[in-house]
């Protein structure tokens, strides 16, 4: 490493519907890379968003039940990886589950639990096994009405791509923070490790837990503010892709792993799988850690998370 002065450069931008922050450590010549990082996320958003008419996701969805669609290699391999995670997680993570969320109409004012018959009918449109991967990068959704969404993995995928881009340009340490989904690598300008702080929800300026990280990505699933209550039970806005019912036994899950895409997907998967099965699933994956808060406020952590207490 050269002896030039190392500084931390930051830039923020609103991308993929979230507040992104990029940090690179380097000398003055590194600052321009922040703009490259933003450009890359803009490119990926245009590629993957389901809300545009021209994205590749939109083209796949518009041709559901009709014909296969050719996509870029990176989209094709992303879908392959999502299918793999889906099968390993027994279907808890599923990029075809969008029609279920639509049933619940969470954004509308007058919320009503859908009928079981509607749920059953929609479940026939869900399942990554119904995504067919054909030759020459063609993707086909078997049933009409099926919809792909990368909402559960898009930010993570973008973070991994940006990190690879920055590392290729010689940035040896930096941070990508997408509203709390964090990727870090290297060390800070003064040589200390990046410390991820998890805020006290009741006082966002106070740090509750801090975790020093080097080369890791942290993602959390289970927005505490997005929930609804019915008959005294609290339900999140995340729907279980196999039952069509919203998850109710977990408050939040945080996953730490070498990849932002993986952490993103696994956080959702574990949230759906629940305390016993979900945590057991993570224990079997090397270099992956998870922390879960259940509905009863019990805190569960995988065996390689060591808790230390500090002074008062």
């Amino acid at each position: 490493m050269s002896a030039t002065l190392q500084t931390e450069f930051r830039k923020q931008a609103r991308l993929m519907g979230s507040a992104f922050e990029f940090v690179v450590v380097g000398d003055d010549s590194s600052e321009i890379y922040l703009t490259h990082a933003i450009d890359e996320v803009i490119r990926l958003e245009a590629l993957l968003t389901e809300f545009s008419k021209t994205s590749q996701t939109a083209m796949i969805n518009d041709n559901a039940g009709l014909k296969p669609v050719r996509v870029d290699d990176e989209v094709f391999t992303l879908i392959q990886r999502c299918k793999k995670i889906s099968s390993l997680s027994q279907g808890a993570f599923d990029i075809t589950a969008a029609p279920l969320k639509k049933l619940y109409n969470f954004k509308g004012g007058d919320f009503k639990f859908p009928d079981q018959s509607d749920i059953n009918r929609t479940l026939t449109l869900v399942g990554t096994d119904k995504i067919e991967m054909h030759n020459d990068q063609h993707v086909f959704l078997k049933n009409k009405g099926m919809r792909l969404t990368f909402a559960g993995v898009g930010k993570g995928y973008a973070a991994d791509k940006v990190k690879a881009l920055l590392q290729q340009k010689g940035v040896e340490s930096g941070v990508i923070n997408a509203s709390g989904d964090l990727t870090v690598w290297g060390k800070r300008a003064d040589g200390s490790p990046w410390k991820v702080g998890i805020a006290d929800p009741n006082n966002k300026s106070k740090v509750l837990l801090s975790i020093p990280l080097e080369n890791a990505s942290l993602a959390t699933s289970g927005d505490y503010e997005q929930y609804f209550e019915m008959n005294g039970k609290r339900y999140s806005h995340t729907i279980d892709p196999k039952t069509g019912i919203p998850v109710s036994n977990v408050k939040s899950v945080t996953v730490v792993s070498p990849s932002a895409e993986l952490s993103d997907a696994l956080a959702t998967a574990v949230f759906v799988m629940g305390p016993d099965v979900g945590m057991n699933f993570i224990e079997q994956l090397p270099q992956v850690h998870a922390l879960m808060i259940t509905a009863e406020n019990k805190i569960l952590a995988t065996s390689h998370m060591k808790f230390n207490t500090t002074g008062m």
């Binding site: 989904d181 964090l182 991820v196 702080g197 998890i198 837990l209 289970g222 927005d223 505490y224 805190i299």
Partner: peptide, 8 residues
Amino acid sequence: ITLDGGAD
């Protein structure tokens, strides 16, 4: 404790 949206 909620861990979402509060990591930084």
